[in-house]
């Protein structure tokens, strides 16, 4: 048998596989500056077809410009996902290495991950945001981070295990160095590529979780422009102006796929949520 190839993506250099995600992220962040119309005022009739009144993608359920709302609607999703991914990666990097250095802590994290496997992330976020009225976006971020940390710690601990048994770390442990010093000075500098890979994977699942939560009306509230919320709000007019639903769907789809492609370039082996 021949050695397995790793798919189409395997033939493109890693740098090129990060480019689509970077371009899309840039467009999303700069989007509000490019919007041709105000995103919060009606400029045409509700569910106007594409092209009506000079709107490229038609109107939404209140007659607001779909294109302008599309250009506004990705920024919060991207920022929330970036914050979640960064926090999870930072905490997991420290806890994962600590778990590898201190096996008892590692076992606790393993058991917590086993328990959280029984809790689908979407339901966990519903539970936290509903039990915490007034928590707003903070509640969403806290829930998404808390639910993701155990798996991320597991991932880091597995990568750190071979490093902590190397001679120089063992001698540092034997000489009585403090744990935080071991983590930041001796182990983490050797795991830079693992941390980067973890960040990519966490960003992929953060986009999934934040978008799904927004679709379930957790997070952005009307009249905010948000891709997931646009899909939900404009579904009743799917026949009249499909673009009001299709355009944000394509946007979320492209974001998820390009970020996943980039994460694949950062990590040799995929790991899940």
């Amino acid at each position: 048998m021949r050695r397995p190839g790793s798919g189409v993506g395997g033939r493109t250099p890693p740098v090129l596989r990060i480019v689509p995600a970077l371009l899309l992220l840039l467009l999303t962040v700069a989007g509000p500056l490019l919007a041709p119309q105000p995103m919060d005022r009606p400029v045409t009739i509700p569910y106007a077809a594409a092209g009506a009144d000079g709107t490229l993608l038609g109107g939404d359920q209140l007659g607001r410009d779909v294109l302008s709302r599309l250009l506004h609607g990705g920024r919060d999703l991207v920022f929330s996902s970036l914050i979640v991914a960064a926090l999870v990666t930072a905490v997991a990097a420290v806890l994962g290495v600590a778990g590898a250095l201190r096996p008892r802590l590692g076992q606790v994290v393993e058991r917590v991950a086993d328990v959280l496997m029984l809790l689908p992330a979407v339901l966990g976020i519903l539970l936290v945001t509903l039990s915490w009225p007034g928590g707003g976006r903070l509640a969403l971020v806290v829930a998404a981070v808390a639910l993701a940390i155990p798996y991320a710690v597991r991932f880091m601990a597995a990568a750190a295990a071979p490093v902590v048994v190397t001679g120089y770390v063992e001698s540092a442990v034997a000489s009585g160095e403090r744990t935080w010093h071991l983590i930041f000075r001796d182990v983490l500098p050797n795991l830079r590529s693992t941390v980067l890979a973890l960040f990519g994977l966490r960003f992929v699942s953060a986009v999934y979780v934040v978008a799904t939560a927004a679709f379930l009306q957790i997070g952005p509230q009307p009249p905010e422009a948000d891709w997931a919320l646009m899909i939900r709000e404009n579904s009743p007019g799917l026949v009249l102006n499909p673009w009001a639903v299709l355009a944000p769907s394509i946007a979320i789809g492209l974001l998820a796929m390009s970020v996943n492609l980039a994460a694949g370039a950062l990590s040799p082996k995929a790991e899940r949520t």
Binding site: T212, I231, V245, S249, M257, G264
Partner: peptide, 25 residues
Amino acid sequence: DRVISASATAVLALPEFVIAVALVL
């Protein structure tokens, strides 16, 4: 092999409600 692997990678990160909208359309 390459087509299956590439499409599997492409769809695995998509939120289900986005796929649902595409299927309905």
